[in-house]
Design a protein around this nucleic acid. Structure first.
Lengths: 215, 215
DNA sequence: GGATGTGAAGTCGTTCACAGCT
DNA sequence: AGCTGTGAACGACTTCACATCC
């Protein structure tokens, strides 16, 4: 296993990987650090440094084999086997996540959707995606986790219910949590939460715009 | 205006600010760097350093006035006046963004929604939010921008149409772009793109989970 | 020739400890 | 006593330049 590197570096590896997946789908076999750098918005030297931390993936004078490097990064990230995801709370956001499974590039699988009011939700989903989706009451989270070993729970409830939903997730022993709500949630040691708040990105965009005026 | 600080720092200011807005709504008047630090997941010293870069906001021995600090950060970020947003492409993601206007805490206003197929979209939206929403053909983007001075365009089309939509946005002169699609988009100098790809966060969550086993 | 891998240098971000104000 | 503001020490990240290999 690869020692504990910083989130900054790991996040870039993820970006590189998704670029490589794209290239692989388009049939490209070889890329250079310059190719990766340009698309991902970093310098070529940094790409090489990032990769060199984890081993030697390239061939001097030639570049990187797309499929090989992609597999290498997947191994580093822990994405070399399929990962199971549960969605907790099925409003507009939950149904969006369901409909965009293609985002996941095959690494993730949504195994179940939970809500405290599953009947009301079913109509919503059916009209959105056209797919039949199994929506279960949150009480069944434990059984499903026992049966399928869920890696990540996505919290997509309304903000005021986020902590309660998270407590439930923690209680059944799912250790990875993606919090899409605007509330902060707390978990005990050994569990990991990552927040996805696009508003912060939006705010920093506004900040940068102040300094990028023409002239 | 406040000189060009790094995205890391600006992103934290945004996180602090949203915490302060929450506290203000709950009637709290005073916070310490320790309060902010605990909720936002950083150290108290870092909070003070971050703020000190931009001026003196607190009172020694006392703490920070919530409303005052909140206003201060808004001024730094450029959020001290309402900002106008357009949504380009109205599928499940676009309708989610519409329905979550409360996320924005009053700083942002969605002035219009555009699509290349507005008729098809209208039904989708109406059933989602229950609100009447004006969906216009993308051809009208220029007029609306003239009339309302749009600050940010959110690209929420299907990935294969992202670049085309972005080109349109650039052409009418909207300089801030939030790209929610999985495609990379290119813009000329003077324009700013920020990507919102939760998959990268999800990937890094998986990485971290490898090292947080019990025991 | 062309691209990687890497030490060394340089920059940037964070922690620490404490002086100073209330 | 409590909490901010800040220089100094520390550590992490990034760039640079070049030796190295295909």
């Amino acid at each position: 296993m690869y020692a504990n590197f910083s989130e900054t570096i790991i996040n870039r590896l993820s970006i590189y990987m998704h670029y490589l997946i794209e290239q692989e789908e388009q049939g490209k076999q070889l890329v250079s650090s310059y190719d990766i750098a340009q698309v991902c918005g970093v310098t070529a030297g940094l790409v090489r440094k990032d990769l060199a931390r984890f081993g030697k993936f390239g061939v001097k004078g030639v570049g990187y084999d797309v499929a090989e490097l992609c597999e290498g990064i997947k191994r580093i990230l822990g994405l070399d086997h399929p990962l199971r995801v549960a969605i907790i709370g099925i409003g507009t956001l939950g149904s969006y996540l369901l409909s965009f499974q293609e985002f996941f590039n095959g690494n993730y699988e949504i195994v179940a959707v939970f809500d405290t009011n599953p009947e009301a939700a079913i109509t919503c989903i059916a009209s959105e995606t056209g797919k039949p989706v199994n929506i279960l009451h949150l009480n069944h989270l434990g059984e499903v986790h026992e049966a399928h070993q869920i890696d990540i729970a996505m919290i997509t409830t309304i903000p005021s219910e986020a902590q309660e939903a998270t407590d439930h997730v923690v209680q059944v022993g799912i250790r990875g949590i993606l919090n899409f709500t605007s509330s902060h949630v707390k978990v005990p040691m050994g569990f990991v939460v990552k927040n996805i708040h696009f508003v912060n990105v939006q705010d920093s965009l506004i900040y940068v715009l102040q300094f990028s005026q023409y002239g």
